[in-house]
Computed example of a mutant assay.
Amino acid sequence: MKCNFHTMLQTNTSLSKLVSLVLLSTILLASTAHATQGQATIKIYTEHLPPYNYLEDGEFTGYSTEILKAMLKEAGLNSSFTMLPWGRAYLSASTEPSSLLYTTTRTPEREAYFEWIGPIGPRKMRLFKLKERRDIQIKSEADLRKYRVGIVRDTSAIKLVVERGLFSKQQIDEAPTTTSNMKKLFFRRIDFILATSGGARYELEHLPYRLEDIEPIYTLDEDFQFYFAVNKSTDAVTVNKLKAAFEKIKATGLLEILRKKYSVD
């Protein structure tokens, strides 16, 4: 009986240890799963497009960036920001799950490829020329076809001006950024640049030229607006969190405050 008692005691002790280990393992697995979910990251892709999105002292900033950061904080989402030329940023966001692209124009051609959050604001694009270029006379849209225009590569604006007959593809000088186009304008390699007023103002503040040296000569239509575009494969919970966060941020009046801060029209 003594031997049997000790055997039973050892068996019960081993069983208790086994149960404890199983319970501990279950708790650890649940904790790990919860931590992994909490660490889920949405990949943010953008381009250099001041005053909407740009780098300043190594930090992502700008009108749209501040809105997005407020949304991410409200939604409790982690993120990683990457700045690329527009074509690469668009390709990355359109092919990678759990990714977001900004600032982008919502067009019929792009509609089916993203979940859209916004609008952030109107897309008011203008043609600018050097004020001293008195040889450039625009009395009708047909006159635009006499000149060369600089537009950022792979943007919807190129398709828009060609479809509207404002410029032919041969007249368009494609560049990676508005900064490149602005320099070409002052070097007289092109006759116009296509930009927002805020974008033109920002570029000239960071180049050895003055805002007074250029003038708008034509405004494209304002049928389209700027949005945040989320990859279609992103889980619905994340998308809904972002949409709800945007509406909450918008209701606080933050967008109006930032429009004034960044001179966005």
Rank of each mutant, 00 (worst) to 15 (best):
L91G: 04
Y90L: 13
I158H: 03
Q170D: 15
T155W: 05
L15N: 13
A75Q: 02
D173K: 03
G199N: 03
T7Y: 12
Q137S: 14
Y262F: 15
L29A: 14
D191H: 09
A33D: 13
L49Y: 15
K146F: 10
Q10S: 14
S98K: 08
P119N: 08
K17L: 13
I193P: 06
A200R: 00
L72C: 10
T41S: 12
M125I: 13
S98C: 03
L211Q: 12
G253A: 07
R153Q: 15
R201E: 08
S233M: 07
G62Y: 00
T177I: 10
K248W: 02
K260C: 03
G58C: 08
K159A: 15
T65E: 14
I67Q: 02
P108V: 10
K261E: 13
C3M: 13
Y262H: 10
P119H: 01
T234K: 09
S16T: 12
L9F: 14
E222T: 07
R188P: 02
P50T: 00
S140E: 14
L254S: 07
M125Q: 14
D135H: 12
A33C: 14
T234W: 04
Q170F: 06
Q37P: 00
Q10P: 01
A70F: 01
R259I: 00
P97I: 01
S180Q: 08
I158Y: 06
I120H: 05
G253M: 05
L101E: 07
Y218L: 06
K124Q: 09
D235S: 09
I117V: 15
I27K: 04
T7C: 13
S197D: 10
M83K: 10
G118K: 06
Y218Q: 01
S168P: 08
M125L: 15
T234G: 04
D265K: 03
L144S: 08
V152S: 01
A195I: 02
T234A: 02
K232E: 06
V22H: 11
V152N: 04
L101P: 12
V237E: 13
S16G: 04
G165D: 08
R153P: 02
K248S: 15
Y147N: 11
L185W: 03
K17Y: 15
T11D: 13
I151T: 13
S168D: 15
Y227P: 03
D173A: 11
L29H: 03
A40P: 01
F224R: 02
